[in-house]
Design a protein around this nucleic acid. Sequence first.
DNA 1: AACGGTGTTCGGCAATACAGAACGGACATT
DNA 2: AATGTCCGTTCTGTATTGCCGAACACCGTT
Lengths: 264, 264
Amino acid sequence: MAQSSAPSVGSVARALDLVELIVGGPENGMTLSEIAKAVGGSKSAVLATLRTLVDFGYLRIVDPGPKYLPGMMLIRLGDLASARDPLITIARPLLEELSAKSGLTIRVARNDGGYPVFIYRVDGPGFVRFHTPLGIRELPHVSSAGKAILAELTDEEIESVVKESGLISRTKNSITKVAELKKELEHIRKVGFATDDEEDAQGIFCVGATFFDHFGKCIGAISATGVKTDMTDAQVSSLGKLIIKYADRVTDEIHGRKISRRAR
Amino acid sequence: MAQSSAPSVGSVARALDLVELIVGGPENGMTLSEIAKAVGGSKSAVLATLRTLVDFGYLRIVDPGPKYLPGMMLIRLGDLASARDPLITIARPLLEELSAKSGLTIRVARNDGGYPVFIYRVDGPGFVRFHTPLGIRELPHVSSAGKAILAELTDEEIESVVKESGLISRTKNSITKVAELKKELEHIRKVGFATDDEEDAQGIFCVGATFFDHFGKCIGAISATGVKTDMTDAQVSSLGKLIIKYADRVTDEIHGRKISRRAR
DNA sequence: AACGGTGTTCGGCAATACAGAACGGACATT
DNA sequence: AATGTCCGTTCTGTATTGCCGAACACCGTT
């Protein structure tokens, strides 16, 4: 999947492929044969790797079958990584406050080379549960957090990201033309927050705003997500003010706590 | 760390040791030399493994240094594993409802061979943030969830678990004698819920109750955690009724949704 | 009862993951 | 400014070890 220029360990890569396969696999687990066939390896080699992963809790076995399922160590590592992340630690109480105040789902994303990577989420009380994945690069041009981050980049960086990710159309509102995107980013710079008006999913509306480290570099964005029908122009405007206010509070906290700059 | 009887893959085990080391390591990351020294391997071999883990997002590098930190894939995998876990999916709305109603921190644990393994948590609105890890076996005798689970085991199973885990004293209230524990478990069976009266940590009070799969087997427990000073006898009693009610609702949902039985 | 499908075990070969030394750069010290 | 020490990185050889394929054992079905 991932590619680097330098020496790496093949058996580890194969093992991690297995984890991803099973985590993304069927709800009720996968059998050894299915897994071996999926990765194109021998059953004996795959079995040894699976055993190692089970020993470490990355996978677990359910009988009868036996079938392999995601293990509880994954939950543990995710929880620990979240608890240790200074940005999440800073943002969490603010997100919870904002979610309680607005009744919306609030998320925080890192700026990962121009792409938004959501790392924490506080669900609103609504019945609608969005399946918003964490910890992975999202399309930058169809989310409010992504567009807010894009608006902080230079023109060269924007073009580079857009060329790489492509202006994929997710709904009929998605921005698919570079010129249109640039105009939108200009507007975002003016008002200070970005919107997502059903550009990623039908019926979903978001607003987002960026925050900055002590070098002044944009290191991420927060966003609020709700259903489109709830949104009048006046509400968008006041929600925009609110999201800017909380993004600024994140910035303030970062400056107060001297958060470390992100890696490249 | 973990041990099995069968063939396993050494380089994968070493790689996963690295992940645990770094996740449990210092806040600002570890350098290659530190890591190599900690695991007792050569720098070149450790470097190759680290590169692989970075490629897959399990670790990330921050400059300058370079230092290695937990990567965002860990958050992603934890989130996915949670989202896929049928027990978490069932329990989550109930936990949130109970947390909102009681103002307490609510957790759900699996019964993992007699040990409680907390897999999801809904923090209460209080200022006190408990560092309650997820995804790992906890001491059974010092938590309400653990004691509630123990109370569902046979005498042989109880003795086996207690012999293995040991009746370690965490506070002056911790139960350290087997006879006392059995008496307590008898009481729990009678009233239907378990308490933790500052047995794990000073000033912390919990109540917990179990739920069951469609074989009638106890597969876990939920618990509510608060500060001791808030707890009058009357409140403990009404909280006990409440936790039983919600645990029963979890059981009902499990039966309705035909959850799969746990391994073993 | 025999077959297709499992998961598991066992040798043998070759790939490959490891160790160690040598390089090059950054920083601190003198 | 020069030197020394630490770091990360690269390289090459060696032997470890992880892989394959076949054979075995086990259910369920036909």
